[in-house]
Nucleic acid binder design. Structure first.
Length: 496
RNA sequence: GGCCGGGUGGCGAAGCGGUCAAACGCUGAGGUCUGCAAAACCUUUAUUCGUGGGUUCGAAUCCCACCCCGGCCUCCA
């Protein structure tokens, strides 16, 4: 609440409760959205790694929200429904699945609980009734509103003085609102026309205000006081302030609900932040179509601190892919030197973790470490514990791989432990897994193999002109040839 | 208009008063390997931190001014 870094202390000794603002499922998540969940996953993994059991709730906002606060505004869910000619519920289902699929491709751990807004409408109505009883609300033609002066220190999270704010700088103000910062708790449906999603309520048929769901669901599953609330930085000024106001009015207490509010910064490009409403944006799927592996995106996120803006470009992403390939390649080489051991099952088992602490897997991985190994892990721990300083923690990975005083098995154990937090599946990924076939590439894999065989023949016959011609042809087609004791090849990502 | 935040090598990004002639990754350059390449590996790549002042024994780091850029004040991570 102070915008300062403070030492984290959970409410219960060894348990942390986290609520993360999830997506509104009216479209595919763009990679900027995804950055938020990489951050959240890293936070959760670190807490697990430090011995915490984590209860993690992420919500799915499947209630439509108006594009404008006015009655005439269009509902994003309704809009998507029209353009896709699908039922609004199908829209929500479709994009929810797409979102979860993205997360699993990024190797994110499942939250303890997915919480869907439309499953909690009656919880929201009950919550709103309590707000009404507390005297913090008032009724207008358009619905039930929250009076932000009824709560102590409204907006203190935002550091934005309420004076001087230009109400409706970008949108027409609602008639009758007592304060510029007041917001809707319940949106009454317009007299004419019916929305696909609307519910009966004491304030007439309509839909809950956007801020209501997070207060309701976080409290329902995590209690009125929990540890960490995460979200994008764009939520810091409005959404979270409103959420806090609701929490305060509901509990009749000045506490904001969560002890820590953490906000990740945006992924931006030359034109500014990525935004669904701008129309054009990159999705994980579009990256994959170019031949860029999702884990390269994860690495890119980790190479920047979560509170810094990340300047996105395909070139940078491709660079991270190269880095990942080298990491994974080097780790495979280490694996060649070590025979199969029971501890090697751990990285895979962790992928199905639902919140338990990593204490046991860590003790297995880290038993009998040398002082050198210990030092590397301590350094990694120190940086990660410093507000998730991933860009500083990452070099310890390279240092471990190149260390000249550690044997291969110890290196692998250390890397496996670090990867419990980094979540890049470093031991379970081979270099060849990372080279994805770009979607619009002309050759098929078997055609490549055939050309490669031809080239090998030409080489054996010392017909280098012909061999090189084939290599050039493959190169322009997006194929990289790697000769050696065992000749191989891989797809190059297609940029642009 | 109000309020936040940022400008560091070709790119991404750490650093936030001394150990900074600025971590780390990618790129580039040189080398090893190779028929030549690629991949891999090794070495190397900012006397300088938007501009101009100031504070200080000492500033990328603090202060002031200016110039750019982004975000929030509708929904968005």
């Amino acid at each position: 609440m102070t915008r300062k870094i403070e030492t984290f202390k959970p409410i219960s000794d060894d348990q942390t409760r986290i609520y993360s603002c999830g997506p509104t499922v009216y479209n595919y998540a763009h990679i900027g959205n995804l950055r938020a969940y990489v951050f959240t996953d890293t936070l959760r993994r670190l807490l697990n790694w430090k011995g915490q059991t984590v209860t993690h709730v992420i919500n799915i906002t499947d209630v439509g929200h108006l594009t404008s606060d006015e009655d005439s505004g269009e509902d994003k869910m309704e809009l998507a429904s029209q353009s896709m000619e699908k039922d609004i519920w199908q829209i929500a289902e479709h994009f929810t699945q797409a979102f979860k699929n993205d997360l699993s491709q990024l190797n994110l751990l499942r939250p303890t609980l997915w919480s869907t807004a439309t499953d909690h409408i009656h919880d929201m109505i009950a919550f709103a009734k309590t707000l009404e009883r507390s005297g913090a609300t008032y009724i207008l033609e358009t619905g039930l509103y929250f009076d932000t002066t009824k709560v102590p220190d409204y907006g203190s999270l935002a550091l934005t003085p309420r004076e001087g704010q230009e109400e409706g700088a970008r949108v027409d103000p609602i008639a009758g609102k007592r304060n510029a910062t007041d917001f809707a708790i319940w949106r009454r449906s317009p007299a004419v026309g019916k929305r696909q999603m609307e519910w009966m309520s004491p304030w007439g048929p309509g839909a809950p205000g956007w801020h209501l769901e997070c207060s309701v669901m976080s409290m329902k599953y995590l209690g009125s006081r929990f540890d960490i609330h995460t979200g994008g930085i764009d939520h810091r000024e409005i959404h979270h302030c409103n959420e806090i106001a609701q929490n305060q009015a509901y509990t009749s207490h000045a506490h904001s609900g969560a002890n820590w509010w953490m906000h990740n910064n945006f992924l931006i490009d030359r034109s500014g932040k990525m935004s669904k409403s701008k129309g054009e944006f990159s999705t994980l799927t579009s990256l994959i179509a170019k031949g860029i592996h999702p884990l390269a995106f994860r690495l890119m996120c980790l190479s920047t601190h979560y509170r810094s803006e990340l300047e996105f470009s395909l070139e940078t992403l491709a660079g991270q892919l190269v880095r990942l390939k080298r990491l994974v390649g080097a780790i495979s080489m280490l694996g060649l030197e070590v025979e199969s051991k029971p501890w090697m099952r751990i990285p895979n088992e962790i992928r199905f973790s639902s919140g338990a602490s990593f204490t046991y897997p860590r003790t297995v991985l880290e038993q009998t470490l040398s002082p050198h190994g210990k030092k590397l892990l301590d350094g990694f721990d120190r940086e990660m514990s410093e507000d998730l300083m991933t860009p500083r923690a990452l070099p310890f990975l390279d240092e471990t791989i190149h260390h000249d005083k550690l044997n291969a098995e110890e290196k692998l154990r250390i890397i496996a432990s670090m990867d419990l937090v980094l979540g890049m599946n470093l031991l379970g990924t081979r270099r060849c897994d990372l080279a994805l076939r770009p979607k619009d590439v002309s050759l098929s894999a078997s055609e490549v193999e055939a050309l490669l065989a031809q080239r090998q023949q030409a080489r054996r016959a010392k017909d280098f002109a012909n061999a090189d011609a084939i290599r050039d042809r493959l190169h322009t087609a997006g194929v990289e040839i790697m000769d050696g004791p065992k000749p191989s090849w891989e797809w190059r990502p297609l940029l642009h």
